[in-house]
Structures are given as C-alpha cells and as structure tokens.
C-alpha cells in the first residue's frame, strides 16, 4: 500500500505533457518561437493569448495532429509524433479532445457519436455500451431524450456538451478542450465551467484548456500559460499573472474585460467564503 502511494506520488510529480523548445513555422510566418511548457497531473491548465497567437496550433501539436517544425512534445513521456504508430493506440485511449465546434459526426445521432470510441476500441457488448453512453450523456447534463437527435437538431450548448461526452467516454486521464465556452451565453458558459470542474474531480482528469474566456480562466484554471509573439509570456496562477510586468500580459489581464473578470472572481471567492 505504501509502495503504491509512493508510485502514485512519483507519477503525480512527472509532468503529463512536456513541450520543449517547440518552434512552428508556416512558410515564413513563425507561430511558435522556442515554446516550452509542462502540465502536471491533476491540474487544469489554461492556454490563453490573443487571436492568432498559436493557441490552437499548439493544442493540435500536442495531440499529434500537426508536427512542430522543431522541438519535441511528450505526452505521458511518449513523443507525440509517435501517436499514429501502431504501438501508440493505447495513448489515444488515454486522452480525449473536445473540438471548438464539437466536430460531431453529422450522419450519426448523439448516442452513436458518443459510442464511436467504445465500438472502435473495445469489445464491450451493445447493451453495456448503450448504458455507458447513457451514463456519460447524463454526466454532461444532457437530457436522455436528446440521445436520438442528430447534431443538426441540437443547440450550440448541447452540441458542446455532446462533444464533451464523446471526449470523456473512454475515461481518459487527460482532456483537451479547445475554446469550450466560446459562443455560449454567460449562464451556459458558467455551467459549462462547473461541469468541467465536476468531471475533473469525479474522473480525476488532467484538463488542458485553450480559451479566451477570462471568467472561465479565473474560475477553473489552476495554472495558465499566456502565449504572445510566438513566445510563452508567462506561466502561473491567475493572481500571479495579473501581477505580471509584461505589457502584453498586463493588457490581456488588466484591460477592461480582464479587470471585470478579476473582480467577479474575487466576488465569487468572497461569496464562497461567506
């Protein structure tokens, strides 16, 4: 028992994701210039930055959809470029990705969409798959009758939840969220934040979240990296970053919206304390 606790401790200490000296170029445009980051087990890690600063590109590189021009990215200690190779299949089961617009398969119903990874990667029988899918659909807060609907018939918020259900259906250790709250109304966005925190606690997830949404960064992120000019301008907790000296980071966090989000977060903290 002590032995396994020690193992767990060392596992927790070793980073889940290690991005080292990554450079990305599209033609002559440099998107990332020597970017290094590491994500620890069990934390919610936010990646923030202005439009076009390469947040989503970095995410695509981490999950192995895109190869960086230079540098290495390790997921669970494995080079992400090796993901596609045959011995990399278990790695795909260890992380889930929720894309910005959901990327649900439009020819399948919601339940079928969620069931795709199970059918593809396990030999579990159809009855159990159906129940498991129903559990995940309920977990993300979708009503059971939405299971037979097609993505075209769902609202934006529901599509986002459905995509989240598909991303967590394999019980991954690591969850990637690309702009999870973009385009959602504040109420739905806030419930989505709570949902992410809840799932993180229940399933013991490590979450990497690319977002512009300052409110959601204050609410859910343990640590945040700010990208800009191809570099990492700062990594730390939100209070640390809001005291940063870097002009771009200051503009990002202490602009009118940033300040409003900060005050909101402080207010929330007081409410919770009271």
């Amino acid at each position: 028992m002590v032995d396994s606790e020690l193992q767990a401790a060392t596992r927790a200490a070793s980073p889940v994701i290690e991005v080292t000296h990554v450079t990305t170029r599209f033609g002559s445009a440099v998107v990332h210039d020597d970017v290094s980051l590491s994500v620890r087990r069990g934390e919610v890690f936010g990646i923030a930055g202005g439009n076009g600063c390469g947040k989503s590109t970095l995410l695509r590189e981490i999950v192995g959809l895109l190869a960086p021009s230079a540098g290495t990215i390790r997921l669970f200690g494995v080079d992400s470029r090796r993901l596609e190779e045959s011995d990399g299949t278990p790695l795909h089961r260890r992380f889930g990705v929720m894309f910005q617009h959901g990327a649900l398969f439009s020819s399948l119903t919601l339940a079928e969409n969620v069931a795709v990874p199970l059918r593809e990667h396990t030999a579990v029988g159809p009855g159990l798959i159906r129940d498991l899918v129903a559990v995940k659909i309920a977990m993300v807060g979708l009503p059971p009758e939405s299971a037979v609907k097609y993505p075209g018939e769902l609202s934006g918020g529901m599509r986002r939840r459905a995509a989240l259900a598909r991303a967590i259906v394999m019980d991954p250790e690591l969850l990637f969220l690309d702009e999870p709250t973009a385009g959602l109304d504040p109420v739905v966005a806030a419930t989505f934040d709570e949902l992410v925190l809840h799932l993180k606690n229940v399933l013991g997830l490590t979450v990497v979240m690319v977002t512009h949404d300052l409110d959601s960064l204050w609410r859910v992120a343990d640590r945040v990296a700010v990208l800009g000019n191809g570099k990492v301008l700062g990594v730390g907790t939100m209070p640390e970053l809001s005291r940063s000296e870097d002009p771009v980071v200051r503009a990002y966090f202490l602009g009118p919206r940033g300040r409003a989000a900060k005050e909101q977060a402080a207010w929330n903290a007081r409410e919770r304390g009271a």
Binding site: A111, A134, A138, M139, E145, V202, G204
Partner: peptide
C-alpha cells in the same frame, strides 16, 4: 472510497428507462 463514489455517481446517473436512447 474513491471507487464507491464513482459507483454512486453511476447509480444515480443511470437512467431507469432504457428505451429512451433507442430510436
């Protein structure tokens, strides 16, 4: 304890009426 938490969660989330998920 962490497993029984999960068990409880699954138990409360599992919809009783199965046919709702099949067209």
């Amino acid at each position: 304890p962490e497993f029984s938490e999960l068990l409880q969660l699954v138990g409360t989330r599992l919809p009783r009426a199965g046919p709702g998920t099949v067209a």
